[in-house]
Amino acid sequence: MAIGSVGVATVQARVSLRARVGELLDREAWLGPIFVSPALFLLLLLVAYPFCMALYFSVSNAFIGRPSHFIGIRNFINLWGSDAFRQTFQNAFVFTGAAVGFKLVFGLSLAMLLNQQLWFKRLIRGALLLPWVIPTALSTLGWWWMFNSLYSVVNWTGLALGIMDPPGPNWLGQRYYAMTAVVVVNIWRGLPFFLITILAGLVSIPRELYEAAEADGAGPVARFWHVTLPLLKPVLAIVVLFSTIFTFSDFNIVYVLTHGGPINSTHLFATLARQVGLETGRIGEGAAISLYLFPVLMIVVWAQLRFVRKQAY
């Protein structure tokens, strides 16, 4: 009898505990934080914390497997004294400027072409999007082979068409050609993103606006300047901002295609940071190089929050 009553009591307690937990989970002020906490924990441990470490590394003489000491901004001063870093700094802007510029122009033209009535539209769109989907490291291997100094199919075609003089440029062995090659592959990979996003922007422009402009006597050029471009501006801003940060921080293409060479002429911050931080072991200096990506990230985030998200809501 006594045992039985104890059993009943625990069952009751269990029921009421479940009911109470259920009730708490029904309250937004409780459920919200519970649902967000796994994501928050992950991002604090593996994003925020490493970021603080990067800040610390950059002002320390950290070296793989050795205790580190605070050395102030000496890493940054040393970096500015090194030719490799100054070259990389310049490369990053040339690379990003050229790649984003071409992607914008080609992406806009392609999107306008695809915004017309076409045969096999879905198929064409699918084909044009393919470079974006395939693993970049692997497709860049294909480009590496295409730019090979002995068997380059690019040079073979150029020679066959009579555009190049034999033996044709040594794409990955000469500095300006190497930069061109790296930019071309980045354009190749990043163009689909521009195309698809700008196309979505074009589709959402109401047809009546074009009809009204045409009725007022505006030609195709005037319609492009006074209807298409102004209405596309928000979309173009998003695309350029996103692409800037991801082009600026690119790693895969340069790592596979040139490893930063010849003589650092294609190094970007990410590839130089890896070379200095891991291959030579100077983590402090490597972290300082990586942190140069941060100001650009801040500008993009600021612009996104300030202009783009405001328009979205």
Partner: peptide
């Protein structure tokens, strides 16, 4: 904001973690 952080910014300290 974390969605915009490129992986190449954090790979060195993350290797330590």
């Amino acid at each position: 904001v974390t969605y915009l952080v490129p992986t190449s910014l954090l790979f060195l300290p993350l290797a330590q973690v």
